[in-house]
């Protein structure tokens, strides 16, 4: 029954697993999934519309009003909702612009990781042999080094730039996609419809896109969604240690790094960027949980 997720092979409902109408119907019935979806859309909109949402530029310093607490606290100003940092930069505006860095790193990093991982996993799983041994060995090797340490060391060597950070997460994030893809390919290769296609003389160039990839789409999309959230976490962690994008760039990690220095005197500098990270991770995880169920062919009868 997991035979084919492409075309109209859906079980029970007769429509594709990815049909927008089906997904929308499922989403409307799932309060948690819907919450996640709305949060994710709002966060993406914030990143795109940052210049219109943020009342100030991200590096616009108002020295006369530096170190202001949030508006509702004593000494706060309604001109700076979440207060200002030691350079008089508006915390709310920097958080709004920081959405861009986080989504770029999470989105492009996950996209790169999927591209590398799926390509290597497909080739390794489908053709086997020495290439498979090489890819599997290297994957196990990368996964055996504690991830946070691996990322810190590579970030140190690469230096601080947005491109480097995206490359770093794209490469170090790929082993998990290699592993999942390779495992699925090995399973699918034994399915009778794939064996039949091979028997009828279909080439790898036809079997992989027609029979293998469509069945991988669901699990990979779910995994990639969670990976976006994980990479946003790791980027913030690197920024916190001063190893991510250059210090002047408004990113949540850089803001937390600054917040740590002033933690006991101006705690709001550390609190609000973390709230932004938590809300983003909450949205992506709620949406991802829903997506996992929605794209699981075995659960499709429920649709």
């Amino acid at each position: 029954m997991t035979g084919s997720a492409n075309g109209n092979g859906g079980v029970g409902s007769g429509e594709s697993l990815f049909a927008p109408a089906r997904l929308w119907r499922l989403l409307r019935r799932d309060a948690a999934g819907m919450t996640g979806f709305i949060l994710v859309v709002a966060i993406i909109a914030t990143a795109i519309l940052a210049p219109w949402i943020a009342p100030y530029g991200p590096t616009e310093g108002d020295f006369l009003n530096s170190r202001l607490p949030p508006a509702w606290m004593e000494g706060g100003s309604s001109a700076h909702l979440l207060g200002t940092d030691q350079l008089g930069q508006d915390v709310f505006s920097r958080i709004v612009y920081g959405t861009r860095v986080s989504l770029l790193v999470g989105g492009l990093g996950a996209l790169l990781a999927v591209s590398i991982g799926v390509t290597l996993g497909l080739l390794a799983g489908y053709f086997g042999g020495w290439f498979d041994s090489l890819v599997t060995g290297f994957t196990n090797l990368l996964l055996s080094i504690p991830y946070l340490v691996l990322v810190i060391v590579i970030a140190t060597v690469l230096g601080r730039s947005l491109t480097n950070v995206i490359l770093l997460f794209g490469i170090t994030g790929s082993p998990i996609f290699v592993r999942v893809t390779r495992g699925e390919v090995l399973r699918l290769k034994r399915m009778s419809y794939v064996e039949a296609a091979v028997g009828l003389g279909a080439s790898a160039g036809r079997i992989i896109p027609m029979h293998i990839l469509p069945n991988l789409a669901g699990p990979l999309l779910t995994l990639a969604t969670f990976e976006v959230s994980a990479m946003i976490f790791y980027e913030a962690g690197l920024g916190f240690l001063g190893l991510s994008v250059p210090p002047a760039v408004p990113s949540w990690g850089n803001m937390l790094s600054l917040g740590r220095q002033f933690l006991t005197i101006y705690p709001w500098l550390a609190i609000f960027p973390g709230v932004a990270i938590a809300i983003t991770a909450l949205g992506i995880n709620l949406f991802g949980d829903w997506l996992r169920d929605a794209l699981d062919p075995r659960a499709q009868e429920r649709g």
Binding site: L256, G259, R260, I271, G274, A278, A281
Partner: peptide, 11 residues
């Protein structure tokens, strides 16, 4: 899954 450890530490 949603609260970064180092931020929790600061809180």
């Amino acid at each position: 899954q949603t609260i970064p450890s180092f931020w929790l530490g600061m809180l």
